[in-house]
Amino acid sequence: MPTVVKCPTCQADVIWSEQSPNRPFCSKRCQLIDLGEWSFENNKISTAITSNTQMDAQDQQDMLEDIEAMLAKSEDSFFKE
C-alpha cells in the first residue's frame, strides 16, 4: 500500500511516489504558495540561541581566516584578487 501524506499547504492527501512529482505538495500551485510564504518570511526555522552555540569574536575571526585560506588555495580564478 502506498504511503499517503498531507499536503503542507492545503492538507489534501498526496500519494508519496513518482506519480506525485510535486510531493509532498499536491500540486505546483501549493508548492508555489509555500515558496511564497518562505520568501515573505512567514515561515522560518528558528531556534533559541544559547551561550553554547554563540561564537565569540575570536572564533568568528578564526573561521573567516580558515575560509580565506581555503579560497586562496583554490585553482578557480574567481576567488583570486
Rank of each mutant, 00 (worst) to 15 (best):
D56N: 15
K73E: 08
M55N: 11
V4Y: 14
Q61N: 13
K73Q: 13
P21R: 02
D59E: 15
T50N: 13
I67D: 05
C10A: 02
S20T: 13
D34E: 11
F25I: 05
S27Y: 02
F79L: 02
P21W: 02
I33F: 02
L64I: 08
D34K: 00
L35D: 10
C26G: 01
I49A: 10
E68R: 07
S27H: 02
M63C: 08
E65K: 11
I49W: 00
S51P: 08
M63F: 10
I45L: 15
R29Q: 11
Q60M: 15
D59S: 12
S27E: 01
K73R: 15
M55P: 03
D56E: 09
Q60G: 12
I49R: 09
M1F: 07
A69Y: 04
R23W: 00
M70A: 15
S51C: 09
E65G: 04
C26L: 06
I15K: 03
K44R: 15
K44D: 11
F25G: 03
S74V: 06
D56F: 09
I33L: 12
Q61P: 00
C7D: 07
S74I: 06
S51K: 12
V5L: 04
Q58M: 07
S77N: 10
V4K: 02
D62L: 06
A57L: 12
V5Y: 06
Q61L: 12
T9I: 05
D62K: 15
E18K: 10
P21K: 03
C30N: 06
F78D: 00
Q19H: 07
S46W: 08
A57E: 12
M63G: 06
S39W: 08
T3D: 14
S46Y: 10
K6G: 03
S20R: 01
L64F: 06
E18S: 11
K73Y: 04
W38Y: 11
M55R: 10
Q61K: 14
L32D: 10
T9S: 08
A48Q: 13
K73D: 05
W16R: 07
S27A: 09
M1N: 12
K28W: 05
E65V: 11
Q11H: 14
F78H: 14
I49Y: 01
C10W: 00
Q60F: 07
T9Y: 01
V14I: 04
C7M: 06
F40V: 11
M55W: 07
K73G: 04
M63Y: 14
T50K: 06
R29N: 11
M63K: 13
S39E: 13
P8I: 02
F40Q: 12
R23G: 08
K44I: 11
F40M: 13
S17E: 08
L35T: 09
K73T: 12
C10L: 03
K6V: 08
D13Q: 11
M55D: 05
F25E: 00
